[in-house]
């Protein structure tokens, strides 16, 4: 059964767009038909992260206003079968579409696709409400930082007020070494505070910057740790049980020395 999933966070810069690009690609690699919808109208970026910026003809607002057919606006990704992008408009603002229009657009996409992933803008105003309007479920993204977790909590409450109770958390950019040193909130801390289920943990990975520079999602790269974590998350979205990647850090020389000297 087709599903619309909104990817949202409240706080900006925690990796919504990167996550949509990677989860969408990973789901398509697993044989699903996927439409990625960029709902960040006025600040479109999903096309850049996907490397599809030169192939856009029409956008979401054109479809909503009836200037073109939905099919005409969908950009097909040539690297992965069954992967499509519906770009946001760049020269309009968030009021250019209504929640009702978003909902009917998502419903129309669901007739043809297995998964519709909606990239929500940051914030909790109209843009977010539009993005979530047609969603069956939500993935809330946070990083292990106070401000991001706090904003995630607000977003979870707002999703529930919109009657989206199927929401899971994706913790992005975790740094195992800092967690081990006690200098970063760990997964259990965040889950306990937010009282929400986990769908994925993505380690901080410089490859994300490299792959984004090139306009290709990290899941297409076998050497990326984040890519591996995104592939696992995609399988969990499909309902598979996949163990979470171990975030253990090999013991450093200093730690071993300290232990030998009895300091630890």
């Amino acid at each position: 059964m087709a599903e619309t999933i909104v990817i949202t966070s409240g706080k900006g810069g925690v990796g919504k767009t990167t996550s949509v690009a990677n989860l969408g690609s990973a789901l398509a690699m697993l044989g699903k038909k996927v439409a990625m919808v960029d709902a960040d109208i006025g600040l479109r970026n999903l096309d850049l992260v996907m490397g599809l910026e030169n192939r856009i003809v029409y956008d979401l607002v054109d479809v909503a206003e009836g200037y073109c057919k939905l099919r005409q606006a969908l950009v097909r990704d040539k690297r992965v079968d069954g992967l499509f992008l519906l770009p946001a408009a760049q020269t309009r603002d968030k009021t250019a579409v209504s929640p009702d229009q978003m909902k009917s657009l998502c419903d129309e996409l669901k007739e043809e696709f297995d998964y519709v992933l909606v990239d929500s803008p940051a914030g909790i105003e109209q843009g977010f409400r539009n993005a979530a309007a047609g969603a069956d479920r939500a993935i809330v993204i946070t990083t292990p930082e106070l401000s991001a977790v706090r904003d995630a909590d607000r977003v979870i409450a707002l999703l529930e007020s919109m009657e989206i109770y199927d929401h899971k958390l994706l913790i992005n950019r975790i740094r195992p070494l800092m967690v081990k040193k006690g200098d970063m909130l760990d997964i259990d801390d965040v889950l306990e505070q937010l009282a929400i289920d986990l769908i994925g943990v993505i380690p901080e990975d410089e490859m994300i910057i490299v792959t984004t520079n090139r306009g290709e999602p990290a899941v297409l790269n076998n050497h990326s740790k984040a890519g591996q974590a995104y592939r696992n998350t995609a399988r969990r979205i499909m309902g598979e049980e996949v163990p979470f990647l171990s975030l253990d850090v090999p013991e450093g020389l200093l730690t071993r020395l300290k232990r030998a000297m009895g300091f630890k």
Binding site: L146, R150, D153, R154, G182, D183, L185, D186, D189, Q193
Partner: peptide, 19 residues
């Protein structure tokens, strides 16, 4: 005190307030 303990406690308080 590890800084994450401080963060965790601050987070707990701010969420109680927010909620």
């Amino acid at each position: 005190t590890p800084s994450k303990n401080i963060a965790n406690e601050r987070l707990r308080m701010v969420l109680i307030h927010d909620r």
